[in-house]
Simulated assay, not measured.
Amino acid sequence: MMLTSENNSSHPVSFILLGIPGLENSQFFIAFPFCAMYAVAVVGNITVLHIIRTDHTLHEPMYLFLAMLAVTDLVLSSSTQPKMLAILWFHAHDIEYHACLIQVFFIHAFSSVESGVLMAMALDRYVAICFPLRHSTILTPSVVAKLGAAVLIRGVLWVSPFCIMISRMPFCPNKVIPQSYCEHMAVLKLVCADTRVNRAYGLFVAFSVVGFDMIIISISYVMILRAVLRLPSGEARLKAFGTCASHLCVILAFYIPALFTFLTHRFGRHVPRVVHIMLANLYLLVPPMLNPIIYGVRTKQIRDRVIQGCCGKDP
């Protein structure tokens, strides 16, 4: 099970992913709702992407950011769910060393990208509500593309050192990861070396990414709330609140389980492992499933296209 690399550090040929420790006897049946949620996430996000791509009237900042969110959700859910289902249904517990590091990269890089896209969507709502007449001139397609590229580059640059540092460290004989996917802290616990630098860098990345994005989102919505409350018409205020409600639901669905999972890894020694593992799985599955549903229900243009596609007639 053990190979020695050319650079005098050692790493395992593969790791063993346990799945959901504590629920071994129920894992086969637990996989069915996970599979259903993954199917909804894939179909929903592909549908959103198809509608936005084919309808040129939807090539506006809000929908372009929504397309970025759909791509990110597809990557996040697909980076973990197929392997998790293989573990729960077929007991395929082994994951090759480099495949594990690739999974670490995609999970953390695209979690950062999702956070950045949510921040960009909050800025879009702020400009649309506070500066409606200048919205199209401020958020041009070029600016939207640059924002998307910036959050992608940030995710790649911030997360790549995780994999580089781990790949150069020796591992202990224990190859068991008590989860259903490879996460940075879970893999780091198997390293037989001083990991303080890795842990400190992980905290820096988490707080610099999530902290910065949440500050921008909070400021944006404070400004939005002030602008909405100044509107003279109650109907206009209700419409503005409705426009932001779906985005706030998406933000809460992403950040609450993400922060719980992150903090539990470092400080939650008394949190039952089964609770932690289940929430860690749901954190990468529930937002990708809910996002297309929330936006499909709350966004009239997307809802109308879905009804038209399903029923073959105008809604």
Rank of each mutant, 00 (worst) to 15 (best):
Q103P: 05
V40I: 15
R303E: 00
D213R: 03
Y181L: 07
A67N: 02
T195K: 05
A206G: 10
V117G: 06
A109V: 11
I52N: 00
G234V: 04
K175G: 02
N291V: 12
T80W: 03
G242I: 06
V197G: 07
V286T: 07
A186S: 15
K313V: 04
L64Q: 11
F131R: 12
Q301D: 12
D314L: 10
I294S: 03
T261R: 02
C172N: 12
H184I: 12
V274M: 06
P257K: 00
F241W: 15
V274I: 11
K146I: 14
C163M: 10
K300A: 07
Q308G: 06
K313W: 09
H270E: 13
A150L: 15
R134T: 04
A67R: 07
S180Y: 04
P161G: 08
L101I: 04
R154A: 13
F90I: 10
F110P: 04
K300V: 07
L229M: 13
V42I: 15
I293P: 01
T4G: 03
S14E: 12
S167V: 07
E235K: 14
L284D: 00
A86Q: 13
E96T: 10
A86T: 09
K300C: 00
S112A: 15
I129V: 06
P292Y: 04
F65T: 02
C310N: 03
F267S: 00
R298F: 14
P161Q: 09
V156M: 09
S220E: 08
S180T: 09
V191M: 04
F204L: 14
T72E: 07
T195P: 01
M121K: 07
